[in-house]
């Protein structure tokens, strides 16, 4: 049974989540990827206001394709989260973001800072952009439209499916899943 998440989320809401929990998000989420993160962190470092109040919000790492007629966005699946790793700890500390949706592993620092700031890392299925776009009902630029697909968009989603990949206690879906199905000895990468 999936857990319904309706942002804004409280610390309590996310502490209740555990690795492997399927969630369905309904409400407003914000997109941000490489270029938007760069700008957000520059503003935070200069002590300036952000263009969007992210307290309690969910950030979705995606850069959608342009919308076809009759659609809110085009294809809109998750992008690789690790490119945002260096930005995530300061972003969590400064804004109170409660969750991020992406794909792939995160760094130790990100995992630690999720615990410190009561936030979780959610993942969606990479390669399912056409299906995920059907869960997006409205989209409008929220900041920096000149960045094109890399702008911050405010999305209204209904039953957007994701899985908890890192919870506030440091549990990790990827390492647990890999350990369970591994049939060979682990080797250091060359």
């Amino acid at each position: 049974m999936a857990i319904t998440l309706t942002p804004p989320l409280s610390g309590h809401d996310v502490r209740e989540l555990s690795v492997g929990d399927p969630v369905l998000i309904t409400g407003v989420i914000y997109t941000a990827r490489d270029a938007a993160h760069q700008r957000l962190i520059e503003l935070i470092e200069r002590g300036e206001d952000l263009p969007v109040d992210l307290a309690g919000q969910i950030i979705y790492y995606t850069g959608p394709t342009p919308a076809q007629p009759g659609m809110a966005t085009g294809s809109a699946g998750p992008t690789t989260s690790s490119r945002m790793d260096r930005f995530t700890p300061p972003l969590l500390a400064a804004t109170g973001v409660r969750a991020m949706i992406g794909k792939g592993e995160r760094s130790e620092e990100v995992s630690r800072s999720l615990g410190e700031h009561d936030a979780v890392y959610l993942v969606a299925v990479g390669g399912a952009g056409a299906l995920l776009a059907e869960k997006i009902e409205a989209a409008e630029p929220a900041a920096w439209p000149e960045l094109g697909t890399e702008a911050i968009f405010r999305l209204e989603v209904r039953e957007f499916p994701a899985i908890v990949a890192i919870d506030t206690r440091g549990g990790n879906l990827y390492s647990a899943g890999r350990a369970r199905y591994r049939r060979s000895a682990s080797r250091k990468s060359c």
């Binding site: 995606t62 850069g63 959608p64 394709t65 076809q68 659609m71 085009g74 294809s75 809109a76 699946g77 992008t79 299925v125 990479g126 390669g127 399912a128 952009g129 056409a130 299906l131 776009a133 059907e134 697909t149």
Partner: peptide, 14 residues
């Protein structure tokens, strides 16, 4: 996803 993309001519991936 592949079915939706083909039917609606929406990119398979963003």
């Amino acid at each position: 996803n592949a079915g939706i993309a083909a039917r609606k001519r929406v990119p398979l991936c963003q």
